[in-house]
Nucleic acid binder design. Structure first.
Lengths: 342, 342
DNA sequence: CTGTTAGCGCCTTCAA
DNA sequence: TTGAAGGCGCTAACAG
């Protein structure tokens, strides 16, 4: 075998002495085709290892059966897990997925969007970059009639469907838990506040403090990114403050890991000197020492639900579209990093 | 704006009263086109937010500018990081990437392959599933003239290019290091041995023992998967053996994490009772307690190099093709889990 | 039930 | 420098 060429319906038609239309029908078991012809065609197709050229199909059906996904960073566990959910749902419906990473860059996100539009994806699933303030590129997508669903990094600037978790509630519970184990000077490593979900976590934190008659002390709220290094830097700053906090609620697990390193480096004990809680429940949170209290997010389900929402929209008439908003529940996971103070 | 339709060169041609051929030429700055016409076309294209339909382009050029990737599991840090490398290299060359997960299933891998072929990817980057023994689906791909590169999970059953790391050497060094800190009963949590790279790690481990005049004791070699739970189960078995090992070299970091949990659960100390080493150098290895000695792999670079190798093949005449084999270096990272015994 | 015909959006000779 | 025409592989009327 040295077939550098792919088999087409034309080849099948020639070998079987029928028209290409007949082949096309047989392959897609259209109702009006004789069983014998169909059998004959399918057998030859299998023998020749024929596979339809999806590109040609897409061109004529005007559907690529491809979903485009834009995320900030695939290496972040939350996103790789969400993508698994997206792919599972997509595969079940016969769709493929093209993934683009914005690397938290607005420019890259715009470029990604264009690429996906050029590739004629049937719909778009997006977690916007941290930098993104202007949503014109997504408006363009909508104007072209391409369904769009935001997940996790959502916003209300555009009338599109979204899937998110109850970040406010999760943060509230984590903070309330820290209070319940006896902490009174609770600091927060806050995420970039132009991202709504991080703002919601901040609000949940603040409201929990107030609901328990604890002061919201601005100096205990430190701007922080979402990588380990960010947690390291933010915690260094935080531990220069006096009096020291007796607890830290970090915006995400990675930031919490960074905090953990610095707290230990300073010779302080977790949770005795400083209790610590994170957000997301990455697998390793159970493994670090002490194990990390955190807020569990259904990462796979977020991806799954987003894809379902998009697929649902894809299957309906465009004019019947009404934006949906799905909020998934989080769950507080209590571990040793917040064990009750003696 | 409510344009549900996408702009085509036909629209541009009509508005400008020129032929579609002229538009096509202007857009792709062909040499024979007047500067004025070109300028006129480009301006209108921008104004109307025209973007070429890549599907139509692919159909006629017979190149999709899409690279297909098949990996076992995107949630594994190694793979998500490798994918970042792949995407970076692909993007630089103007290629897109479609990722499929086999979930370690042979059947799924075969299905993935078909999907990607149907989508007329220009080339394929593959880390085969754990189950895969039969490579006929990849032979089919090669017979269709689609370039193929194996990375990480490579094998020598097919004459294709591959990118791997020096697994043997990495395992040898890790084991030699354990010996150098005074361990003499070194166990190995071995990966699935039908996967060549895991076999190489086993061989590196065994050869290091022999080179240092230590016996290779079969009961200290435990079959293990590559997830945390696998490490847990394997270590449970291992710690029933007497005498207990005084060190464990785990096939990967996740298995090492599982081992770490069980060792602690048994009230044994790391490294004093049992030293521990992993493989890959996932970010969290530095964070667990004690921090984990491991063998660092250039995960991003593996992806990058694989993509480069494929792109290189794509740019050359098929008949000039000679399979390449690139082996990247690993590096031993010594941390507290193997601190010298007092 | 099957064949003919016309595109989908674009590229690419071949003429003009 | 530009236009006309054919075709990439497939689907979808429309006839027969």
């Amino acid at each position: 075998l040295k077939t550098t060429e792919q088999i087409t319906i034309k080849d099948l038609a020639r070998q079987l002495n029928v028209s290409i239309a007949t082949i096309s029908r047989a392959l897609r078991d259209s109702p009006d085709i004789s069983p014998e012809t169909k059998k004959m065609v399918l057998e030859l197709a299998k023998k020749l290892d024929y596979h339809p050229n999806s590109i040609a199909q897409s061109l004529v059906t005007r559907r690529s059966r491809i979903i485009g996904v834009i995320i900030p960073d695939i290496v972040i566990h939350f996103y790789s897990s969400a993508i698994s959910g997206i792919q599972a749902a997509a595969a079940e419906a016969g769709y493929n997925v093209i993934i683009c990473q914005s690397n938290e860059s607005y420019q890259t996100e715009v470029a990604n969007t264009q690429t996906l539009v050029s590739n004629r994806v049937d719909g778009l699933l997006v977690s916007v970059s941290r930098e993104t303030q202007d949503f014109a590129h997504f408006e363009t997508v909508m104007n072209k009639g391409i369904p769009l669903v935001f997940f996790n990094r959502v916003n209300d600037k555009l009338p599109v469907s979204r899937v998110e978790v109850d970040d406010y509630e999760g943060a509230y519970q984590a903070t309330a838990h820290l209070i319940s184990v006896g902490c009174t000077r609770i600091a927060h490593l806050a995420g970039p506040l132009n991202v709504p979900l991080f703002r919601k976590r901040l609000e949940g934190y603040m409201d929990a403090l107030q609901a328990h008659n604890l002061p919201v002390d601005e100096q205990y709220i430190i701007a922080c990114g979402i990588r380990i290094e960010d947690g390291v830097a933010a915690t260094r700053k935080l531990l220069d403050i006096s009096p020291l906090p007796d607890a830290i609620f970090a915006v995400c697990d990675s930031a919490a890991f960074g905090a953990m390193m610095i707290i230990k480096e300073r010779g302080l004990r977790i949770p005795d000197d400083i209790a610590l809680a994170g957000f997301t429940n990455e697998p390793v949170t159970a493994l670090v020492e002490p194990s990390l209290t955190t807020v569990s997010q259904p990462t796979f389900d977020i991806g799954w639900a987003s894809a379902q929402m998009l697929l649902d929209q894809l299957s309906k008439e465009p004019h019947t579209f009404v934006p949906q908003d799905k909020v998934l529940k989080t769950q507080l996971i209590i571990r040793n990093s917040t064990a009750r103070k003696q």
